[in-house]
Simulated scan of single mutants.
Amino acid sequence: MWRILPVPDAASLYVNSVTAVAADDVWVSGYTVEDKPMMLHYDGDVWSRMPFPYDAVNGELIDLEAHGPGDIWTAGRKLNGEEDTGRSGHALGR
């Protein structure tokens, strides 16, 4: 059954990808209005921002895939400076 769930800071997020392993294991990736990558996780009760390694000025998470609990992969792009047009192909796994 579908239901509406409030997402923290929803007005400041742009979502690129959503994937669910189970009803209590849902993942969202994208970027913020500040052009910073973001990842959220829903545990069946609340949404939480998930930390991940990131070493650039700006960027976004473009795609997300989950194969099971603890087996989450995302790919995106990062910009190392204001003149950088972006580098893609960076994958993160958990």
Rank of each mutant, 00 (worst) to 15 (best):
I62D: 13
T32A: 03
L64N: 01
D43A: 02
T85W: 14
D71V: 15
A91F: 15
D35F: 08
D9Q: 09
A23I: 08
K78A: 11
V18L: 11
I62E: 13
D43P: 00
M39G: 00
G76S: 12
I62G: 05
R77I: 10
V18R: 07
G30P: 04
V18T: 12
P69H: 15
I72M: 02
A66L: 09
G76D: 09
G81F: 01
P51C: 09
M50F: 07
G30I: 00
Y54W: 15
M1G: 12
R77M: 12
V33C: 07
T74Q: 07
W2D: 03
L40S: 02
W47H: 06
L61N: 04
R49T: 08
P69V: 14
D9I: 00
L5M: 11
T85L: 13
Y42N: 01
R49Q: 14
D9K: 03
I4Q: 12
V28M: 11
D25H: 01
P51D: 15
E65S: 15
S29H: 07
W2N: 02
N80P: 04
G93D: 02
E83G: 10
E60Y: 15
D43H: 05
G70P: 09
G89W: 07
A56N: 13
G89P: 01
V15H: 10
V46P: 02
D45H: 15
Y31D: 04
V28K: 02
A11E: 13
G59A: 09
I72A: 02
E34T: 13
E65V: 10
Y14Q: 08
M50E: 14
L5I: 08
N80K: 11
D9S: 09
D43M: 05
G59M: 02
G81M: 00
P53G: 00
H41I: 12
V21Y: 02
F52K: 09
S17A: 15
V33A: 13
V33T: 08
A22Y: 12
W2F: 05
W47D: 07
L79K: 14
E83P: 06
G30A: 04
M38L: 13
A22T: 09
Y31S: 03
H67L: 15
W27L: 03
E65R: 14
L61I: 08
L79C: 09
N58L: 11
A75P: 04
S29D: 08
A22C: 06
G44K: 06
V21G: 01
A20S: 13
L40P: 05
L5N: 11
L64E: 01
S17H: 09
Y54N: 06
M39P: 00
E82T: 07
M1R: 10
V28L: 07
Y31F: 11
L61P: 00
L64K: 01
P53I: 09
V18F: 11
N16A: 10
W73I: 00
D9P: 00
P69G: 14
A11W: 14
R94I: 07
R49S: 15
V46F: 12
L61K: 01
T19G: 00
N80F: 03
E65P: 04
S12W: 06
S12C: 07
V15Q: 11
I72N: 03
A20I: 03
Y31V: 01
Y31C: 01
D71A: 14
A20K: 07
V28N: 02
M1Q: 10
